[in-house]
């Protein structure tokens, strides 16, 4: 029984962390129409940033600044924001394709550098030596995990509230205006490039927060955690949930994470031993089918976007 409860705590923690990242993507894609092909890079920047800034000093690589946890987490989020700003400044004035390709490339480079630059990230064996905050008080057991889950849930709710307020604000309406008709938005005297950059960086910072929490939970991060798979998973979460709808993003994150872990468990349990190396391939085919299938048959997602109508903007009869 306690096994099931502790597994549920673990599952909810992971799903909530991924839900935060999905909310970040929703701001970019769902609300603004920006295609981020490198979610893993921004998630990873948050994860590596947090551990490098908050970890204990290590002999063989950089880091170990032992900063207070909140500062380290903020630093990880800032790292994600800086990456996003660099890509955004270079590409957001151009055709949308450029952002898609550049962010995708950024994720490849991020993983590649983390894997090779041992002086920076510990290389392929990952980054260790991080003391989880309040570990002395709570220990390493169930109590810690339950407390951590509580923190993650609070942050998930805070992110959700923040984005709900944001999309209902004039800024949120501007984002949708730009998504729908850039020329019209420009004629209102707004600079679409700047507005899109703000949305893109904000969304990436939120992904950085998710990455920071993820790394904190495991007190460890390695290049295996920032593979392109993560990007695909988070997209599937958003598309299934419903792009443009924050509640849909959270719902999709839980649903897809459940489906992913369940399919992984089923495959590892029932697939023949000599076919075990192919279980990954099967899971990728499934996630590809989910993405394509949703786009073909229910592009609005399970919880479609509900267009926010401003108080004065009642539809004319």
């Amino acid at each position: 029984m306690t096994g099931i409860i502790s597994y549920l705590v673990f599952f909810t923690t992971m799903a909530s962390i991924l839900a935060i990242a999905t909310l970040g993507l929703n701001l970019q894609w769902g609300n603004t129409g920006l295609f981020n092909g490198g979610v893993a890079a921004f998630f990873g920047a948050g994860a590596y940033g947090t551990l490098l800034l908050g970890g204990t000093s290590q002999e063989d690589h950089l880091g170990g600044f032992e900063l207070p946890y909140v500062v380290a987490l903020a630093g990880g989020m800032a790292a994600a924001g800086i990456l996003a700003w660099v890509v955004g400044v270079l590409t957001l004035r151009m055709r949308r394709d450029y952002l898609a390709i550049s962010t995708f490339g950024m994720a490849i480079v991020f993983e590649n550098v983390m894997r090779n630059a041992e002086w920076l990230s510990g290389g392929a064996k990952g980054l260790r030596g991080f003391e989880r905050p309040l570990r002395d008080a709570l220990g390493d057991g169930f109590a810690y995990n339950a407390a951590f889950l509580a923190v993650v849930l609070v942050l998930l709710f805070a992110t959700y509230r923040f984005l709900q307020v944001l999309v209902r604000s004039p800024f949120g309406r501007l984002l949708r205006a730009i998504r729908e008709d850039e020329t019209a938005a420009r004629s209102l005297g707004k600079s679409p490039a700047r507005v899109r950059l703000t949305a893109f960086v904000t969304g990436s910072v939120i992904m950085g927060l998710a990455g920071g929490l993820y790394a904190t939970f495991y007190a460890f991060v390695s290049p295996q955690d920032v593979l392109p798979t993560l990007t695909f998973q988070i997209w599937a979460m958003l598309i299934v949930g419903g792009a443009g709808n924050n509640r849909g993003a959270v719902f999709g994150a839980f649903l897809i994470w459940a489906a992913w872990t369940a399919s992984g468990w089923l495959l590892s349990r029932f697939a023949p031993v000599d076919a075990q190396i192919y279980t990954g391939s099967i899971q990728y085919v499934l996630i590809g089918l989910v993405i394509v299938g949703m786009l073909l048959w229910r592009p609005q997602g399970l919880l479609p976007e509900r267009l926010v109508i401003s108080q004065s903007g009642q539809a004319p009869s």
Binding site: F35, D97, A100, W235, I239, Y284, G288, I291, V292, L295
Partner: peptide, 12 residues
């Protein structure tokens, strides 16, 4: 959404 579709197709 075509970009998404192309990613999904690539995975498949």
């Amino acid at each position: 959404s075509m970009v998404f579709a192309s990613f999904g197709l690539a995975l498949i």
